[in-house]
Simulated scan of single mutants.
Amino acid sequence: MLNKPGHKKRWQLLYAVAIVASLGLGVVLGAQQFSAASPLAAAQLLPAPKTLPEFTLENHRSEAVGVNVFRHRWSLVFFGFTSCPDFCPLELQKLAKLLNLMGAGDELQVVFVSVDPERDGQEKLANYVGFFHPQILGLRGSNLALANFAQFFGAAYDRSAIVESKLITIPAGINLPTNVGEQYQVNHSTRVFVVNPQGEFIGSFTSPYELEEMLSDMQKLMGR
């Protein structure tokens, strides 16, 4: 019964509503932090830098990492998930092109934070980020650790699932119910957050933006 076309269309509609609502929340929460005026083309800067708090996550090589992973280089941080059908791969393609254009070596890294720990194991995450660029660092962790890390940046996300023909929302930080399975949608904000070599969150880029604008802004921020 659940496989009938009518039910499938209803699921798609419910998921679409959840995605729009969640992304809207991410835009609102993110926009509240940033200064309206910026001397840059696309980046929105915070009124003052925010020092990253202590945290423990795991990189795509199964190594425990903390704030030191952001020291001594610039970082662009993006929250998503490897099963994302559209926005995540397009964004990572754009960020990979930026890395190539910058020729930054160890000066710049892209950090992809998976907010889908149930499906994004170490091997899957490693294969995913490696496909786009060797300078993309994958991070994963427990639901609680990820929620705390995302909350610092103002990155909103949640999961939507159909259980017994009803749409349920699982907030950030909460483990998935055992009856959800693997058929669920992750809804996440789409900002790219900027962290300086001192480990300070200083601003973000929000879609839509042009690659050339991001390139120009990062060159200015990095003093090039």
Results as ranks from 00 to 15, higher is better:
A126S: 15
V180A: 07
I19E: 14
P208L: 10
V195K: 02
G173T: 12
S165Q: 15
T190M: 13
F78K: 00
S114E: 15
L29F: 10
A104V: 00
L23N: 15
E213A: 12
V110Y: 01
E91P: 00
E118F: 00
D120I: 02
P134R: 04
V67D: 04
L92N: 11
I136R: 11
F193Q: 05
G24T: 12
V110A: 00
F132P: 13
R73L: 02
V20K: 07
K124D: 13
V113A: 07
L137I: 10
V28F: 03
S62Q: 14
A43G: 13
M214H: 09
N68Q: 10
G80I: 09
L25P: 00
G199T: 02
F152W: 14
A156F: 05
E182P: 06
W11Y: 10
Q44F: 03
N100Y: 12
R140D: 07
H133W: 03
L108W: 03
I136E: 13
E91R: 06
E63C: 03
L2G: 14
L45T: 02
A42W: 05
Q185W: 05
N175V: 10
K4T: 15
A16C: 04
A18S: 11
S22P: 11
L45H: 15
T206P: 04
E58N: 12
F193P: 00
K9S: 03
S160W: 09
T190Q: 13
K97D: 10
F153I: 00
R10D: 12
R61Q: 14
I136L: 09
K220C: 05
A156K: 15
R73Y: 08
L108P: 01
G30I: 00
L125K: 13
S38E: 03
P89E: 14
E63G: 06
G223H: 14
L101K: 11
L215G: 05
G154C: 08
S35W: 02
L99Y: 08
F79H: 04
R159Y: 08
A42L: 01
M222E: 06
K4I: 15
R10F: 15
K97I: 03
L46P: 13
V113G: 05
G154S: 10
L125Q: 13
N187D: 15
L25V: 04
F87Y: 06
L76T: 07
Y15V: 09
A41L: 07
S207W: 08
P49L: 02
V67N: 04
P89Q: 14
V180P: 10
L52E: 10
